[in-house]
Each structure stands twice: as C-alpha cells, then as structure tokens.
C-alpha cells in the first residue's frame, strides 16, 4: 500500500521559489498498475523522485507499508531503494561496460543477495523478460532498444521490489516494441502482485492501466479508475 499525503516540493530559483509539486495526495493499492500523465515540466519526474526516495519532499508524507520514507535517513533511503523500489528509465540507463547479466547482478549485489546466488537469479530474471542466453552476455550497446528496456525491467525486478517506478518506459521505443514492454509490465503487476507507477505521455498506454492520474503545474488530478 502506497499512501501520499499533501506532498509539496519547492525549488529555489533566481526568479524565486518554484513549486514543482503542490499538495499532492494519492493512495495506490498493492499490485495496481497506475499511470501518471502530464506535460513536460508538470512535475511527473519530481513525483517519481519523491516516491523512489531519490529526493526528499519540502513537506508531506509518503507511506510505503506504514513506513514514512520521507523521514528516513540517507542510508536508510538507499537501503529502501535497493530492496523496495525498482526503477525503469526512458533511456534504460544500463551500465555500458557491464553485460546484461552483470547489470542485473549489480542490482542483486546492492539488494544484499549472496554472491553465489546472483548469477542464477539474474539468468532467470532475464530469461523471464525474454532475453536469451547469448544476449545476456552482451553489453548494452549490442542490444536493441527493446532488449535494453527488458534488461532494465529485469534489473528493476531483481530484488522483488514492492513498487516499480517507470519513467516513460516506452518513450524511446517504436509503438510495437512499446506495446510489448507495456504488456510485460502489465503481466508483472498481475503475476508478481507488484505495484507499478508509470509516468507516460502515451494516452493509449495510460488508458490501459488500472488508474490514471494527471499532473498539471504540480497539482494532481485523478482521471479514471478501472
């Protein structure tokens, strides 16, 4: 269960204080697939940063399983990210000099998985997202965009996170590949009962998620609920 209450994030700029998020509140049940749409600069990425403990809010609370992550120390926030959160980025953000397998094993290492167990688990995760054995030993530069995003999803799933935060997961992919990635995420939320919050500008994809929110000028509006 994810519960956000009165979340506000302000930044100081030369022209004064800018509110990137203003009094945002939302509740997401475990296993739900939620999408957030909004224009560039509407605060989508800032909201994901707060939910993923990458940044701290100016005010408000974020409760994940009854723990207020906004109040955690820096070290505990890092541990929270490693074990409870999976990130999927628009530009995949795989480590370029590590193979697909090593990228997933890296997340397992940060999650505290014993070194002798990492390889087998990474192979299974990659296999589950459709990366073949020979592709697992390739570096990201030798994989297609869709394959890289699958590796990114496998990395996000590595430590069986409570929440996957996806920032424009299909933004760099063609529509057919994007559709496949969306289906992969959708199936995961069903099979693994993982909460997925995806920021997207693709209304077609947003329409297929369990719930959709809209962000405009830092304010959140609920659009639909399935």
């Amino acid at each position: 269960m994810l519960s956000v209450k009165n979340l506000t994030k302000s930044f100081n700029s030369p022209s004064g204080t800018v509110k990137a998020l203003e009094d945002v509140s939302l509740d997401v049940d475990t296993g739900q697939f939620v999408s957030i749409i909004g224009k560039s600069g509407s605060g989508k990425s800032t909201l994901l940063s707060m939910l993923g403990a990458l940044d701290t809010p100016t005010s408000g609370n974020i409760h994940v399983d009854d723990v207020d992550i906004a109040k955690l120390s820096s070290a505990k926030q890092t541990a929270y990210r490693a074990r409870k959160i999976g990130f999927v980025f628009q530009q995949y953000n795989l480590i370029p000099n590590l193979t697909a397998l090593e990228n997933v094993m890296l997340a397992l290492e940060f999650g505290g998985v014993k070194s002798r167990e990492r390889k087998a688990r990474a192979e299974k995760l990659l296999s589950d997202v459709g990366i073949k054995a020979d592709q697992q030993l390739r570096k990201p530069s030798r994989l297609s965009g869709g394959q890289q995003q699958r590796v990114s999803i496998a990395r996000a799933l590595a430590n069986r996170p409570a929440i996957i935060l996806a920032d424009e997961p299909t933004g760099n992919l063609d529509s057919e590949t994007g559709q496949k990635i969306f289906e992969l995420l959708h199936n995961l939320s069903r099979s693994e009962n993982t909460t997925i919050i995806a920021v997207t500008h693709d209304l077609d994809i947003a329409g297929k998620t369990d719930r959709t929110f809209s962000l405009k000028d830092g304010k959140l509006t609920k659009l639909s609920k399935s």
Binding site: T78, F89, A107
Partner: peptide, 16 residues
C-alpha cells in the same frame, strides 16, 4: 555522472 546517479538510484551507496 549519469552512471553514478543510476548506481545510487538502484541502491548503491556513495561509499561503494
């Protein structure tokens, strides 16, 4: 810089 950000985002500590 981006790579360091990613490592930190997926749970890598600054010390690591």
């Amino acid at each position: 810089r981006r790579e360091i950000g990613v490592i930190k985002a997926i749970g890598g500590t600054s010390q690591k």
